[in-house]
């Protein structure tokens, strides 16, 4: 144990400390946004947003290396791609002129394809697998600052507008009839979801980020009867999953993203089984 702690503080392992710290700082965002994604049933929308982030990454890397636009970093591209996708799908679902699931599928596939095409034409080595499955070696101090900003951007509005958020999530028609600006809150939620996804790209990758966003919230949902308590429990679970997953990936030499998600998935299935069993006994 003491050896493990000493190893954690060794200078070579700065990336692991970053990852653990980001896991701790990101869990409130994961808990809150994940709960809203699960209860509003927009996880496929979040998936489309995550995959569109790759389109942004590809375009940004291409512009950075070919057109020499130094400000055009992969993070900027990922935020732009994820935000654009989330807002496109969100506006479609609000106006409901098209089939929403079709639009989600198109944005999902198109975003990813555009990303891969640009990455193919970008000169130099590109670790595209890192974007798909996560690469904690890429984490930097910048990610920690971004996480803190996102914490504030999610928790402050939630605290100020909690009753409106609850009313909108439960019954958006009724909330609208009572004068709540449902489209505004909904689009803000989507934008925050997109930012959360981008933040977690380096930790778990595009393909697994949806699992990390939904599994802690879904697990918490088995045991809670308030939206706020679901958010709180989901925050604790997110932190546990990320921390235990990262440590086990480090000590057993496993990729971090899959280790975190398998752990979260196993706990979710156990919780689901337990709550069904308890429901039957009642």
């Amino acid at each position: 144990m003491s050896e493990m702690i000493r190893e954690l503080f060794s200078p070579e392992l700065v990336f692991l400390r970053y990852a653990l710290l980001i896991g701790l700082l990101a869990s409130p965002v994961l808990g809150v946004v994940g709960t809203l994604v699960v209860t509003r049933r927009i996880s496929s929308l979040a998936g489309a947003s995550a995959h569109a982030a790759l389109g942004g990454v590809g375009l940004a890397l291409f512009l950075q290396r070919v057109c020499l636009l130094s400000w055009c970093t992969p993070t900027v591209g990922a935020v732009a791609g994820a935000l654009l996708a989330a807002l496109v799908v969100g506006i479609v679902s609000l106006t409901a002129k098209e089939r929403e699931d079709t639009v989600i599928a198109v944005v999902w596939a198109l975003g990813m394809s555009i990303g891969l095409l640009f990455l193919e034409r970008t000169p130099g080595y590109v670790d595209w697998q890192g974007y798909l499955f996560g690469n904690i070696l890429l984490l930097s101090e910048n990610d920690i600052k971004m996480t803190l900003v996102l914490d504030a951007a999610v928790l402050l509005p939630l605290f100020l507008f909690y009753p409106s958020v609850l009313a909108m999530s439960f019954d958006s028609t009724f909330a609208e009839l009572r004068g709540i600006k449902v489209p505004v809150i909904y689009l803000v939620l989507l934008a925050l979801t997109a930012c959360t996804i981008v933040l977690l790209l380096n930790v778990v990758g595009i393909i697994l980020v949806i699992a990390l966003l939904t599994l802690p919230a879904a697990t918490a949902g088995c045991f809670t009867r308030h939206l706020w308590s679901m958010m709180a429990l989901s925050t604790v679970l997110s932190w546990l999953f990320v921390t235990c997953g990262l440590l086990s990936s480090f000590y057993y030499r496993l990729p971090s993203g899959p280790a975190i998600v398998v752990l979260a998935g196993a706990v979710y299935l156990a919780a689901l089984g337990f709550s069904k069993w308890k429901g039957k006994r009642r």
């Binding site: 609850l166 009313a167 009724f174 909330a175």
Partner: peptide, 24 residues
């Protein structure tokens, strides 16, 4: 409505009193 939504009966009834705007 979503039958699995985490909310109590009182919280639902309270939604009738909701006021739009800041700090509701």
């Amino acid at each position: 409505l979503d039958a699995a939504f985490p909310v109590t009966a009182l919280e639902v009834a309270l939604m009738g009193c909701i006021k739009p705007g800041f700090f509701p």
